[in-house]
């Protein structure tokens, strides 16, 4: 093992603090004029890649490649990733859409080709994108590559020069620790780290870092859709039931509602 060549796929999504609005035709969510940001789980994966470099573990980080697929504004997302510490970026141009973009299987196939072309040995992804909430891409990629996977990681440790990695990850009811050898796919969970803010000098520097424009065809992939959106609707609204004055009122109301 000479060093780590890390791929960090990132997604531009509607900002987590914004309540999405359904469009009139019920085909998707309004995206025009809505604040977008880097998917929060992807921030964690960039941060972890950068920390692996800073930690100076048994394996040196040779290169961190950030990648995003989507419309023109994904370039901003990639600049943010580079301001946080990624060395270079690929922007795979895909027309904007309001249905969450490419399907995870398509993304996984694209990433599989990127991994081969760029000789990547560690892929760090977020555990899910907060728009589609699917949580599939990392596992699919690992399956396609035939690599081991560690999902929902809360701690990543490179143990030796042979590329042994120990990952603690979140499972139902606690955590579990796994050991695997590089190459490896890791998806990140919230407790992994606290992402840094990009400093102004780093934002300026990021503008000079290489950002290559790519097409899906460069990776031999088509935007094929297996799932068809029938409709997107509002969840059934909950009606607040009003307030009570004191604890007795609370107990009374709960009894009335049959909850006690």
């Amino acid at each position: 093992m000479s060093g780590l060549r890390i791929l960090v796929p990132v997604k531009r999504v509607i900002d987590y603090a914004i309540k999405p609005r359904i469009n009139k035709t019920q085909t998707g969510v309004e995206t025009a004029g809505v604040k977008h940001s880097l998917n929060p789980f992807d921030e964690l994966s960039i941060e972890e890649a950068v920390r692996l470099r800073e930690r100076k573990g048994p394996l040196k980080v040779e290169n961190i490649l950030a990648l995003s697929a989507g419309g023109a504004k994904c370039a901003d997302t990639l600049r943010t990733a580079m301001a946080m510490g990624a060395d270079r970026a690929f922007h795979v141009e895909v027309a904007d859409s309001n249905d969450g973009g490419l399907e995870p299987l398509t993304v996984a196939k694209m990433l599989q080709a990127v991994v081969k072309q760029e000789n990547i040995n560690l892929v760090l992804l977020g555990k899910q994108a907060i728009d589609g909430d699917q949580g599939q891409t990392g596992q699919m990629l690992a399956g396609l590559l035939g690599w081991p996977q560690a999902t929902q990681a809360s701690k990543v440790e490179i143990k030796d020069e042979q590329g042994t990695v120990e990952v603690t990850h979140e499972v139902d009811g606690g955590v579990e620790t796994l050991r695997a050898k590089l190459p490896l796919v890791i998806t990140t969970d919230l407790r992994l780290n606290e992402p840094r803010y990009a400093s102004l000098p780093n934002i300026m520097k990021a503008k000079k870092k290489p950002l290559e424009k790519k097409k899906l065809a460069d990776f031999g992939v088509e935007d094929q859709r297996r799932l068809k959106t029938i409709k997107v609707t509002e969840p059934p609204a909950r009606q607040g039931g009003g307030k009570v004055e004191d604890v007795d009122g609370l107990i009374g109301k709960l009894k009335e509602l049959g909850a006690l």
């Binding site: 995870p104 909430d133 596992q139 699919m140 990629l141 996977q149 297996r226």
Partner: peptide
């Protein structure tokens, strides 16, 4: 859609070349 299902099924779907439907 537990930690077990979330880790396993997308990998199965990719091996079968199908797009999974989550949760």
């Amino acid at each position: 859609h537990s930690a077990f299902g979330k880790g396993l099924l997308p990998r199965v779907a990719a091996l079968l070349d199908v797009q999974q439907i989550s949760d």
